[in-house]
Amino acid sequence: MEQWLGSLIKSGKRVVAPVKHDDIVDFAVISSPAQVADDYVQTRLSAKQYVFPKAEVLFSYKKDGKDVTIDDVNTDEFPETVLWKLHPCDVAGLEPLGAIFNWDYKDSLYNARRAKTTLVTFACAASDEYCFCASVGGGPGNTDGSDVQVTMLPDGDALVELISDKGKALLTDDIKGETSSADGIDKEKFIAKVEKKFTVDEIIKKLEGSFSSPIWQEQSDRCLGCGACAYVCPTCACFDIQEDSHLHGGRRVRSWDSCGFSLFTLHTGGYNPRTTQSARWRQRVLHKFSYMPERLHVTGCTGCGRCSRACPVDMNLVEHLTEIASHE
């Protein structure tokens, strides 16, 4: 695997993989296979930043007297990227993201980055009590959306599933000779077990008519209203548009935003339709489990558990969803 990854790096593609720095594992651009982290369950941030950066320029402009020149971003300059050692839930997050960025307006920046991205997932060897992919239609060995899936075997060999043409194209010549048939290998034996705690259908059904339920306030009393859950989430796609303007030019910038912030829905006229944190918490859950399934036919949650790991006050999504699923 190291030899293959080394060849990919040498091929000139940008290779992004989980890297450990201090006490956190996060995705970063790597220059050597030795940088790839082992023995962790989940990266702190999702991989969405490589298709939807935390801040990106939409266009820039120059002013010269009355003349204004607008420069669009040249998407040809986006690098061909291999996302290496994703989990199946990272890939699951790209489906709702793609649906949002192509719902009505086709977002050229998102689509250009996504088209140049190849997804290599590693089936999860370990999970923890925050993981709930199996409850939202995923699984630790799920191949949906992956271009390649790797399952590490105990003897150091790897089961490699080449799923798409993009994935097949990734197999470099030097590594082709190292492969043999994988017949008879049951990958389920080598991957983590994630228990199913509820189903999406149960949640969707319970959420019908729940808008005025007291459960939203009960669950969200302690919510601080920060954006940690949204920013670590692989499917949260809300953004802000900001102007970076100077005397002779400027840039329009798109940056991550969160429905948890009190000013997120503040109108220019001063009205704010979501004045309480419970209304904002309700929006977060309904958006992922009601509005997105209804409008985009996709669930806005991959069960990666990042929001719950990142929350300073233990807003645990599994606990809250389980409560919603069992609520009368």
């Binding site: 941030l45 935390k54 601080l224 209203g225 920060c226 954006g227 940690a228 949204a230 920013y231 940056s255 991550w256 969160s258 912030f261 000013l263 990142a310 300073p312 006050v313």
Partner: peptide, 18 residues
């Protein structure tokens, strides 16, 4: 920093409305 403002939200002395 990802500008999630968890530092601000968790701080009891950060009580400004804006």
């Amino acid at each position: 920093c990802i500008k999630c403002y968890a530092c601000r939200a968790s701080c009891p002395l950060c009580y400004c409305n804006r």
